[in-house]
Computed example of a mutant assay.
Amino acid sequence: MPIIEVNLLEGRAPEAKERLIQALTNAAIEAIGAPRESVRVILREMAPAHFAVGGQSLAAKATATAQSKVEEDWSDES
């Protein structure tokens, strides 16, 4: 029984997650001949604050990017 675990950031549409589940299931069937009913897929969603790259969470990076954009837009108006 193949078990496929996927970690992804929260926020995707339910339809997109269903497509991912179907694609992963089909890949397991094609790659190793697993019976469809034996394939298990686990999606683990995480908040951007719970995932970091280079020592900075994605939430903090998004906040910094947004703040930088606001400052840039404000300076363009001056």
Results as ranks from 00 to 15, higher is better:
residue 71 E to W: 06
residue 67 Q to P: 03
residue 55 G to Q: 04
residue 14 P to G: 02
residue 38 S to I: 07
residue 37 E to M: 02
residue 48 P to T: 00
residue 10 E to V: 02
residue 6 V to E: 04
residue 65 T to Q: 12
residue 26 N to K: 15
residue 38 S to C: 13
residue 22 Q to C: 10
residue 66 A to E: 04
residue 62 A to R: 07
residue 62 A to W: 00
residue 6 V to Q: 03
residue 58 L to A: 07
residue 12 R to G: 08
residue 67 Q to T: 14
residue 33 G to W: 06
residue 58 L to F: 15
residue 12 R to H: 09
residue 39 V to Y: 09
residue 26 N to G: 15
residue 18 E to S: 14
residue 34 A to M: 09
residue 37 E to H: 13
residue 10 E to P: 00
residue 34 A to T: 02
residue 40 R to C: 00
residue 47 A to E: 14
residue 23 A to L: 13
residue 5 E to K: 12
residue 22 Q to S: 11
residue 44 R to L: 05
residue 21 I to P: 10
residue 10 E to A: 07
residue 27 A to W: 10
residue 11 G to K: 04
residue 21 I to E: 06
residue 45 E to K: 12
residue 41 V to Q: 00
residue 24 L to A: 05
residue 15 E to L: 09
residue 57 S to D: 06
residue 29 I to C: 10
residue 26 N to Q: 15
residue 76 D to I: 13
residue 15 E to Y: 01
residue 33 G to R: 07
residue 75 S to M: 08
residue 32 I to C: 08
residue 68 S to Y: 07
residue 68 S to M: 08
residue 36 R to I: 14
residue 39 V to L: 10
residue 72 E to T: 13
residue 54 G to V: 02
residue 11 G to S: 06
residue 39 V to S: 06
residue 23 A to D: 10
residue 16 A to N: 01
residue 63 T to L: 13
residue 43 L to Q: 07
residue 2 P to W: 07
residue 31 A to G: 10
residue 40 R to P: 03
residue 57 S to C: 07
residue 73 D to I: 15
residue 58 L to H: 13
residue 22 Q to M: 09
residue 53 V to H: 12
residue 74 W to P: 00
residue 78 S to D: 14
residue 5 E to F: 07
residue 14 P to A: 02
residue 23 A to H: 04
residue 18 E to I: 11
residue 70 V to P: 03
residue 6 V to D: 01
residue 49 A to N: 00
residue 73 D to A: 15
residue 46 M to R: 12
residue 69 K to Y: 10
residue 1 M to H: 07
residue 73 D to L: 15
residue 24 L to Q: 01
